[in-house]
C-alpha cells in the first residue's frame, strides 16, 4: 500500500474557521504544495491556496507549516517525522481571506510609498557603467521574491501590528538596495527614520531565518541602514554641525581626505 501523510489544514475565512484533517498519498520528493493540490483535486475542490511557479521563484505560496513561515512549494513532506500530522495555516500577520490565503495588500501599499531609483544620467551610449564588486551586495537583496514571509515572522508586524509606522524587513532591504545603489542620487535617510521606522527593528534576525532565498536581511541590509541613520541623526559631531550652521536638515560633514 502506498504511504500516506495526514495534513491538518486551517479552513475558513474572516468570520471564523477550523482545522480539517486530510489524508493523502505521498510520493518521492513531494512538497506540501503537492499535498494541498492533491487534496484540492480529490477531496476539497474549493480549498483556497495561492501559488504560481512551484519552483521557489515567485513567492506566492507562503504559509505556515507546523507554525513556521515557509514556501509550500519548497517544503518537502519527507522532512517531517512520518506518522505525525503536518499542520498548515495561513500567514498570521496578515488579514485572513480564506483557507490558506491572506490579504497581503499592505505590502503593495508600502511599496508605493518608497521613492524609486533616481539615477545619474547615463553615458553617451545610453548605458551606465558599474563594477561587479560595487553591485555584488545589492544583487543579494534583489534576489527577494516578495513572498512576505519576513514580514509575517517579524514581531513588529506580527505581534505589535505596527503596519502604519514600520515598513518591515522586505522593504528595508529594498531601501538598502536603493541606498547602496551606485547610480542613485536620492537621499531616503530622513524617511527611513521617520516614515519607514527602521528604528523599530531590534535585530532578532527572525526575518533572515525564514528567508527562502537565504538573504542575510538583518546583517547585510538592516544593520547598515540603522548605522547610516544613526551616523546622520545621532552622531554628536553631526549634532554640533547642525547647531553651528543652523541647518535643520541632515547634512553631510565635510569629508577629510587622507
Amino acid at each position: 500500500m502506498a504511504a500516506t501523510a495526514t495534513f491538518r489544514i486551517y479552513r475558513g475565512d474572516a468570520s471564523g474557521g477550523e482545522f480539517v484533517e486530510y489524508s493523502t498519498e505521498t510520493y518521492p520528493g513531494m512538497v506540501v504544495l503537492d499535498a494541498v493540490h492533491d487534496i484540492q483535486a480529490k477531496q476539497a475542490p474549493d480549498l483556497a491556496v495561492r501559488w504560481n511557479c512551484k519552483a521557489g521563484r515567485c513567492g506566492s505560496c507562503g504559509a505556515e507549516v507546523n507554525g513556521k513561515p515557509r514556501l509550500l512549494c519548497m517544503t518537502r513532506v519527507d522532512k517531517f517525522p512520518a506518522g505525525e500530522p503536518i499542520t498548515v495555516t495561513p500567514m498570521r500577520a496578515f488579514p485572513h481571506l480564506r483557507d490558506l490565503v491572506t490579504d497581503v495588500s499592505w505590502n503593495f501599499k508600502v511599496a508605493k510609498k518608497i521613492p524609486p531609483l533616481k539615477p545619474i544620467p547615463p553615458e553617451s551610449d545610453g548605458a551606465w557603467r558599474m563594477q561587479q564588486y560595487d553591485i555584488d551586495r545589492i544583487q543579494e537583496f534583489r534576489k527577494c521574491i516578495e513572498c512576505f514571509l519576513c514580514q509575517d515572522v517579524c514581531h513588529v508586524v506580527r505581534d505589535h501590528d505596527r503596519k502604519e509606522e514600520f515598513v518591515g524587513p522586505r522593504f528595508l532591504i529594498h531601501l538598502a538596495t536603493l541606498d547602496m545603489h551606485p547610480l542613485d542620487t536620492l537621499d531616503r535617510r530622513p524617511m527611513l527614520r521617520e516614515a519607514f521606522g527602521v528604528g523599530y527593528c531590534n535585530i532578532t534576525r527572525c526575518c533572515t531565518e525564514v528567508c527562502p532565498e537565504h538573504i542575510t536581511i538583518t546583517d547585510n541590509a538592516i544593520i547598515p541602514l540603522k548605522e547610516r541613520v544613526a551616523d546622520d541623526f545621532y552622531d554628536p559631531l553631526q549634532w554640533l554641525w547642525r547647531k553651528v550652521t543652523g541647518s535643520k536638515g541632515r547634512r553631510r560633514l565635510p569629508v577629510v581626505k587622507a
Partner: peptide, 22 residues
Amino acid sequence: PDRVKELEGWGALFDRTPDGKI
C-alpha cells in the same frame, strides 16, 4: 539593446563585464 539599457535606469542590475558594462 535600448530596451535593456533603459531597465538599468529603472533599477535593474545585470551582471557586469570587467569594464563595467552589462
